[in-house]
Each structure stands twice: as structure tokens, then as C-alpha cells.
């Protein structure tokens, strides 16, 4: 019973944590293959060889697929991710695993990449290659296509959220804003969000807006409409309080006799 009351009080305080915003660039295929298990593959990292489960069993993982020869989206993708994570000021609650899906990439290529982004000493970031890349990309639902005329892979910028059980809880495709990233961070920690809004247009007044820094919803313009009736009523009553003395019935004849 004490537990119940405590629970209730906490829930009352939790005014804010029901949903977050999908943010700009929401892509339908992000909802494919959710809650599937990520493949168990060996990883070669700068600090030795480990298997993927050893990683996610310690802390949840955000998995990004890139290749170092990429002249397209890979570099902006990583830079954007790095900037966004820095702006969130996120602490060591999860790892960012960057895996090359290009068999031609070696560990030293990846180390160079890490160096270029100034991430070589950042413990949160892990750069790795794997001998079983096709198993890994298939389990993540990531399908790059080799374009021999351009000598490049045709691919999405895919970020895969993996919780401590190795389940894919969320995917993000493309260069995404902080909102979306925060949504992913919460999902890889298995924080259940009861609901999320879909992208829509022309909507001026919605009830809540999402604060990416705290990851909480805050009342927005639309909520004013819920409070407005009370505000207007109170204003009317205040006006009455000032005006009504003038309306008072003065003479005794005007006031009907009270009947008892």
C-alpha cells in the first residue's frame, strides 16, 4: 500500500513523460524489423576483439553503418550524430558502435576515420569491422547496393538502437535532429513511451511540444486553449468584483422579502 501511494505520487509528477516527437524526416521504413534480435557477430575494434553481445549486455548500443571510402552521406552522418550527441551532453549511458559494411575497409582505415572526427579517445565511440558483415546487416534490415559505375555503395544513413537484450528497439534513417535521437536513447534503455505523434502539416495549436534537452514534453501553445476558459472566467469574475458594487440594490422596496 505504501508502495502504491508512492507509485501514485511519482506518477503524478510524471506529467511530462508520455510521448516524444518523431521529429523531422520520419521515415516509414524505420518501423520495419523492430524487436528483432541483432546478429551475434565478432567485432574487431581498436582495443581488441569482442563479440557484439558482450557490448550490448553492458550498455545499450547505437549502431551506425558506414564505409570509409564513402563520398556521400557517411561523413555528414557521423558528424551530425557526433554534434547532436554533444549537444545533448549525454553521459556514458550507451555506446555508439560504428561498423563498416565495406569488406575492403581495414581496422586502420576506421581508426583514421575516428581520428578525423576527433573521436579516437572517446570511450563512448567504438569503431569496428566484422568478418561477418552480411549477417549483421541482414539482421539490422540494412541493404546497401554496390554501384560499380560510381565505385560507391548506394545506401541509407541508418542508425539502429539496440537494447541490453540485443533487440532492435528503434531505427532512424537519414540526418536526424536531436529530438529523434533522444527518442532513440530512451527506447534503447527500454523506456516505454505509450504513444508518439505522426508527422503532420498545418497544425498550429498542438497540446505539447517536445524539449530535446530534457527529453520531456512541455506545455505548448495549444494547451493554452485548455486553460483559456478558466482564465477568461476568472477575468470575468474579477471584473464583476469591481463592477458589482454599483449594481447593488439600495432601497428596501427593491429587495423582495426573504421567504422563510
Amino acid at each position: 500500500m505504501y508502495k502504491g501511494i508512492l507509485f501514485f505520487l511519482i506518477a503524478c509528477l510524471g506529467f511530462t513523460d508520455a510521448i516524444s516527437d518523431p521529429g523531422a524526416g520520419y521515415n516509414l521504413s524505420e518501423e520495419k524489423g523492430l524487436y528483432a534480435k541483432i546478429a551475434d557477430v565478432p567485432l574487431n575494434t581498436g582495443s581488441g576483439n569482442i563479440r557484439l553481445p558482450e557490448l550490448y549486455q553492458q550498455t545499450p548500443v547505437m549502431l551506425a553503418f558506414i564505409f570509409t571510402r564513402c563520398t556521400g552521406i557517411c561523413n555528414p552522418f557521423l558528424l551530425h550524430l557526433k554534434d547532436n550527441l554533444e549537444s545533448l551532453g549525454s553521459k556514458e549511458k550507451f555506446k555508439v558502435l560504428v561498423v563498416s559494411f565495406d569488406p575492403a575497409d581495414s581496422l586502420s582505415d576506421l581508426n583514421k576515420l575516428a581520428y578525423r572526427f576527433g573521436l579516437q579517445d572517446n570511450d563512448q565511440w567504438i569503431f569496428a569491422t566484422t568478418p561477418q558483415i552480411s549477417k549483421l546487416v541482414n539482421s539490422a534490415g540494412f541493404y546497401p547496393v554496390w554501384d560499380s559505375s560510381r565505385q560507391q555503395f548506394d545506401h541509407d544513413a541508418l542508425l539502429v538502437g539496440i537494447d541490453k537484450e540485443g533487440l532492435i528497439t528503434k531505427k532512424l534513417i537519414g540526418l536526424r535532429d536531436v529530438k529523434s535521437l533522444n527518442w532513440m536513447i530512451r527506447s534503447i534503455h527500454d523506456e516505454f513511451m505509450l504513444s508518439y505523434p505522426l508527422p503532420r502539416e498545418n497544425m498550429l495549436f498542438s497540446c505539447f511540444s517536445y524539449d530535446p534537452v530534457t527529453g520531456k514534453k512541455s506545455p505548448s501553445f495549444g494547451l493554452l486553449f485548455l486553460v483559456l476558459p478558466a482564465i477568461l472566467t476568472i477575468m470575468l469574475l474579477v471584473w464583476f468584483a469591481y463592477q458589482s458594487p454599483k449594481w447593488r440594490l439600495k432601497s428596501a422596496q427593491e429587495i423582495p422579502p426573504a421567504k422563510n
Binding site: R200, N202, M203, L204, F205, S206, F225, P229
Partner: peptide
């Protein structure tokens, strides 16, 4: 009744703007 008026204004806004203004179903 003030609430009803606000609700109706939001309905009319969408109705007479021919969809260029959309309301939030939750609100």
C-alpha cells in the same frame, strides 16, 4: 460555454479555411 465557443471557433477556422488550417485531434 467559453470552452464550447473556443471549440467551435477552431472547428469554423478549419471549415472556412478549406483545410489550410488543421486542428490537433488531441486538443
Amino acid at each position: 460555454l467559453i470552452t464550447a465557443v473556443i471549440l467551435l471557433i477552431l472547428f469554423f477556422a478549419e471549415y472556412y479555411s478549406n483545410g489550410s488550417f488543421k486542428n490537433d485531434p488531441l486538443l
